[in-house]
Design a protein around this nucleic acid. Structure first.
Lengths: 209, 209
DNA sequence: ACAAAATAATGACCTTCGGTCAGTTGGTGA
DNA sequence: TCACCAACTGACCGAAGGTCATTATTTTGT
């Protein structure tokens, strides 16, 4: 009598396929201009059905955002577990991974930037929010662990505060890049990559032994 | 026959008073939940009249955002013109000013964070957008100038790229802070201030002579 | 095998809100 | 006094997020 289990699996699949559809719609039309009807049509469901799986348009967005964080976490985990690099080299590599992610998954990356916008309009309870927060935690933990590894292998100064630095690096990713993109055409002829690379270089000089 | 001039002044005043009203409404209800009718009522005008002064709700938001940037620019200008501090001390002071601003004008600060959100839904032409971009430029210019002054007075390394560093610092302001606020309750017991201070300390170590 | 119960899904409908525009008001200048 | 014009009004429109009574489908008990 695996009926319940099967139904649960199917429900999960439905849910994922709705997120798939939402991604296609949101990423092509933009969140503002995409409608729930669009998503419903793309998911081959009625609009009402969407609301059996997600409480609101914003929550659906958070589900996509969660995927972004998940992808990033996996990338960073690989880096963390890489045995061939010293701690400081890993931090250096981190900036390249940031940039690579934003290039390979520009839409996922952009979704990260609207965290606040959607988060504010979601109920605090709920699996999606909790998972998103968890992924966020995980990422900070990984970066922090990398720094600590650097301190263990003596490539990063012992007096560096790993947790604070990890938050700072993560903050840069969602701050420098977009802020550079913003002024990109308007002000200077630097691209965001240069800025983030440069910033990492400076920080690396400050923390290396 | 100063009628035309007077009318122009009055129009300008009206426009400002609409922004005043919008601030009160948006800041108290939040942008999403505030309606143009709310703003119209607060401004003691009809909804239609608002659209004689601003093309859209988003543009009205950009007008508020412009005020935020203006305030910040004035703060930074004071710092730039301070004759009693060396360049490197000014950079150090900059982080304190960032934090002070976000504390004294939390709503203005928050408005900065939704730049992208509103910008994307505004026509590229128009005085407001142009002014906003200009303020943005100005701020980056000021920070960059401060760094150059530090290089002139030999408190900052000559090989530092002032323009890149300026963008990095500015990006941190709109990246680290909110990202820290985000995870504030969820993950760690650091407050955003600590993170931004710490980050500045590291950078200052990397750039000072 | 069949009906009752439970679950999934539908789509017409509701409400709200950004934005419009034909019409009104009131100051201006001749 | 009156024609004119800019400022302003507010009823109205269309779009879109969200709801819910109804229908369809699957499961369960006998």
């Amino acid at each position: 009598m695996g009926v319940i289990e099967r139904k649960e699996r199917e429900k999960e699949l439905r849910s994922e396929s709705i997120i798939d559809a939402a991604e296609r719609i949101f990423f092509s039309k933009g969140f503002e201009h995409a409608t729930m009807n669009d998503v419903a049509e793309e998911a081959e469901l009625s609009k009402g059905a969407l609301y059996l799986y997600f409480h609101s348009k914003n929550e659906l967005c958070m589900a996509i955002l969660q995927r972004s964080l998940h992808i990033l976490r996996e990338i960073f985990e690989l880096l963390l577990n890489n045995k061939n690099l010293t701690g400081i080299k890993k931090i250096s590599k981190l900036s390249k991974l940031f940039i690579a992610f934003s290039k390979e998954h520009p839409k996922y990356y952009t979704s990260l930037l609207s965290y606040r916008e959607h988060r504010e309009n979601c109920p605090v309870t709920g699996k999606i929010i909790k998972n998103t927060i968890k992924e966020n935690k995980n990422i900070n933990k990984i970066i922090s662990d990398i720094i600590k590894m650097g301190q263990a292998d003596n490539t990063i100064k012992k007096d560096i505060d790993a947790d604070k630095l990890s938050l700072a690096l993560w903050g840069n990713f969602t701050g420098i890049m977009p802020s550079s993109i913003l002024s990109e055409k308007a002000t200077l002829n630097f691209n965001p990559e240069d800025i983030i690379k440069y910033h990492f270089e400076l920080l690396i000089n400050a923390i290396k032994t």
